[in-house]
């Protein structure tokens, strides 16, 4: 026996799915209703997530259970951010942003170098080996990385040799964009098939 809540919920879900699909024909009131409903629901959802997973355990529980009142400092800084809506007090939010952005700049500096920049470089400059195929691939990778970097290097005019290397760079960039585009299209198509499957299964009572 299927619970009533699930049956009603499935019908609502199917109705909302069809409402959203109606945009394929053209922008219409049904879609607009669904769009605004989605906006309100998602905003309400994220407020709850923020409160129950961050503010409640890190602020209220810390004060009530652990008597840790240090959390009042970030809470105050958080309230400073909210003061941006009052023009005469909006400058207070600079303290919060300064702590967040300044601290994060320092926090991420060594991480970028050690965890991102150096591993990417070492992957590019690996010793050649493993047969003809892998060696060709490694040469292509080295050429592509170098030429892509040159393409985005604007301190030199892209003429003569630099211009040629930059043209090679754009070739690799376009292939990469094409591959990413194809990948994204297939992911979206897969979601679309999933939605159609949901509608068909709901009508068949599965």
């Amino acid at each position: 026996m299927i619970p009533v809540g699930e049956v009603i919920g499935t019908w609502i879900a199917v109705g909302l799915t069809l409402m959203m699909f109606s945009f394929i024909y053209k922008d219409n009131p049904a879609f607009k209703f669904g769009e605004h409903l989605y906006l309100g629901i998602s905003v309400g959802y994220y407020v709850n997530i923020q409160y129950w997973s961050t503010i409640y355990p890190l602020v209220f529980q810390q004060m009530q259970q652990n008597h840790n009142y240090w959390v009042l400092i970030p809470t105050l800084l958080g309230i400073f951010i909210l003061l941006r809506i009052i023009p005469s007090l909006s400058w207070l939010s600079r303290m919060s942003f300064a702590l967040y952005i300044g601290g994060f700049a320092g926090y991420s500096l060594p991480l970028i170098v050690h965890s991102l920049l150096l591993p990417q470089l070492s992957q590019t400059l690996q010793p050649y080996g493993g047969g003809v195929g892998p060696v060709i691939n490694q040469i292509i990778i080295l050429l592509a990385v170098f030429s892509t970097l040159i393409y985005f290097f604007f301190s030199l005019e892209h003429r003569k040799t630099v211009g040629v290397i930059s043209r090679v760079g754009i070739v690799f960039i376009m292939v990469s964009f094409g591959a990413s585009f194809g990948y994204t299209v297939m992911a979206r198509i897969s979601l679309l098939i999933g939605r159609f499957q949901f509608i068909i299964d709901s009508f068949r009572g599965q």
């Binding site: 952005i101 300044g102 700049a105 320092g106 991420s108 500096l109 970028i112 170098v113 991102l116 920049l117 990417q120 470089l121 992957q123 590019t124 691939n137 292509i140 990778i141 080295l142 050429l143 592509a144 990385v145 170098f146 030429s147 892509t148 970097l149 393409y151 985005f152 760079g169 690799f172 960039i173 292939v175 990469s176 591959a179 990413s180 990948y183």
Partner: peptide
């Protein structure tokens, strides 16, 4: 995916990382 796409992305990302380092120092 593994050769031209990964390599071009790596080129773009290296530029992004270098910019992030520069901007972090400028902020600090």
């Amino acid at each position: 995916l593994n050769v031209p796409n990964a390599a071009a992305k790596r080129g773009i990302l290296l530029g992004v990382y270098l910019s992030q380092i520069a901007i972090s120092i400028r902020i600090i």
